[in-house]
Design a binder for these strands. Structure first.
Lengths: 358, 358
DNA sequence: TTGTACGCGTTATCAG
DNA sequence: CTGATAACGCGTACAA
């Protein structure tokens, strides 16, 4: 017999003995010979309870290590002090920072966070919405998947009177609060920067056709060109839709070089795409930014350590998560107090971070 | 008045009208003129209920969009179908992949996941343990913070009879299941690889002194040297403990070059440290691997796109999360069935990924 | 100041 | 096969 297994079993036996009993109000009440109601009130600092009994209750509660059973509290108060988050994926620098912000803010206000991933699939998004509704979370935070093109599940949340805040990938037609950046303006700024630096033949590696975010960035790109009297050339726009941003960037860079030898800059929809481009150019010894400049989007950590370092748009991920959560918790609070809710749309500022690649 | 605000308020009014009532067993029962008990049984497919009534109940439940109130279910069954995860941070490639694995596996089995961050602080770790216990999660998954040097909070979990699985950063003395890699062997393999490639003066950028993980990797480094008749030189070991891995790598590389001009390889405790080293060497035009080879640890995505690409130890993050969750859910299930639990210690294999930097 | 009694929505036992 | 009834643990209006 393996020693570690033996050890483990041994431990279980010991544990059975040390097992801590969970104390309830009833336990305290019976030990003290008073009623459950009084104990409850004492613990919640009600005014109509004798100082002495309160002290006794507090002492006993402490001694028995009492903590209220949240399940029972939830059932009574109809609040779970829990919010749900649905995002495409956690394995993503942007989203993990958003989560960081969400958890930090929620925790500060005494809320717990349940995280679910849509994996960019509509049916999973729907499934998870139902899961969260059944779980009776107090509110829901969502960044929509790229494939989401119908919104009954969002309407269901709203019709159930559960506060919903959309962030990042947002649907304008849904009546709820939203937190996002101005993708069009951010893209416009990035491309304008390239133009000001003297680049003229600027390609754009864009995202899928459906998501608003990708169209907005594309529009920003186009507008920047037109506003600076550079004709818009559709053949300079490449679509990255394999959900493999890095390889999309790498492969499209390859294509681009074949099809447009004279291109002098690329605006990529995402840092990952940009890093794919950089990788390819490095392999071919195409000099960045001397031969071709590259600008990314999101300011992933990676963009600051890659060679050359990447000029990119800083997207305040942590702040997006934090703000969305603030609004959500506010709405939850208002709802609880039966006060009217006014939905907000917050647009957080972005900044272009200038680095070596442009 | 701002139009969007007006629009929002309008929407609220509409919502109030569409508000969906939540149906309970009682509703179904009264509509059908039967008892709650029968409805409950019909819905749960108990054998002792008439086919006709069952059909009627099912139909009505469907019509009214009935879903059981999980809060009540939880209170009754004393299960929340929720597990808690405490990790140092979500903003970390390794941990976000672990989370991915955890959520995927939990979801498959119908469990939800609450995530909390210790931010490498012991007091937060303790706080969160209490939060999760109060929340009555069915089980807890933890990767300990670097600062964790006492374990009463872990013992508290166990004494409450809540299944606990430790992963990645593990404490051997705690009687619970564990999922981890063999850090010492992984480090040994990495350094042996350098030696076989002909490198002789190999530095090690290690982690903080406390965490087991960092000591294990250091031991692997030392053993590999000794086993290959290379004397161990303590002055070649640099400590990275600023919690800023990238900068630690960068700065220690600077120091190393000053203090040991003839060093020919570095084994870094983490890819981030390695990338910091690479960055510094790139700036100084020190050739990797010709002048100095670099090996990292973890196989972050970044390591495959940096220039030169980084040789590193692949740590199966997703699998670690998935396996830990599997074991946890198993133990939860066993506990629920009042069957004895045997703790497991799973050691997942790592692989050295050979790239350009060595 | 304290205690009684009920409700939250389910599940489970047991009698009919 | 069906339905009272109790219980889970807590909160609170109301009676004492």
């Amino acid at each position: 017999m393996d020693l570690s297994v033996y050890f483990s079993i041994n431990c279980i036996l010991i544990l059975k003995i040390v097992l801590m009993e969970i104390t309830t109000l009833k336990d305290i009440a019976s030990k003290l010979g008073i009623s459950v109601a009084t104990v409850s009130k004492a613990l919640k600092d009600y005014p109509d309870v004798n100082k002495d009994t309160k002290k006794k209750v507090l002492h006993m509660a402490n001694k028995l290590n009492y903590t209220p059973n949240q399940l029972a509290v939830n059932l009574r108060t109809k609040q779970t002090k829990t919010i749900g988050v649905i995002i495409p994926t956690t394995v993503h620098h942007f989203f993990s920072k958003v989560i960081d912000g969400v958890i930090a803010e929620a925790e500060k206000k005494g809320y717990l966070v349940i995280i679910l991933q849509s994996d960019e699939k509509l049916f999973l998004e729907k499934l998870h919405v139902n899961l969260l509704i059944d779980k009776r979370v107090d509110g829901i935070l969502m960044s929509l998947s790229n494939k989401t093109n119908e919104f009954v599940h969002l309407k269901k949340i709203i019709s159930r009177n559960i506060p919903l805040v959309l962030f990042d990938k947002v649907e304008p037609s849904i009546a709820c609060s939203k937190v996002r950046i101005d993708d069009q303006k951010a893209a416009y700024d990035a491309v304008s920067h390239l133009i000001k630096k003297g680049y003229r033949k600027i390609a754009h590696f864009r995202g899928d056709l459906n998501p608003k975010i990708s169209n907005d960035r594309f529009e920003g790109y186009r507008k920047a060109l037109l506003d600076h009297q550079i004709p818009y050339d559709p053949s300079l726009v490449y679509i990255c839709n394999n959900n493999k941003d890095f390889e999309d960037g790498y492969q499209n860079a390859q294509k681009l070089i074949k099809e447009h030898k004279d291109v002098d800059a690329i605006f990529a929809i995402t840092d990952l795409v940009a890093v794919g481009i950089i990788k390819y150019f490095n392999e071919l010894s195409i000099k960045i930014p001397d031969d071709i400049a590259v600008v990314g989007f999101s300011n992933w950590f990676m963009s600051s350590v890659v060679t050359p370092t990447l000029t990119t748009v800083d997207q305040p991920a942590y702040k997006i998560g934090k703000t969305a959560t603030e609004i959500l918790l506010e709405e939850i609070e208002l709802l609880h107090q039966e006060q009217p809710i006014t939905h907000k749309e917050v647009i957080l500022p972005t900044h272009l971070i200038l680095r070596e690649s442009s």
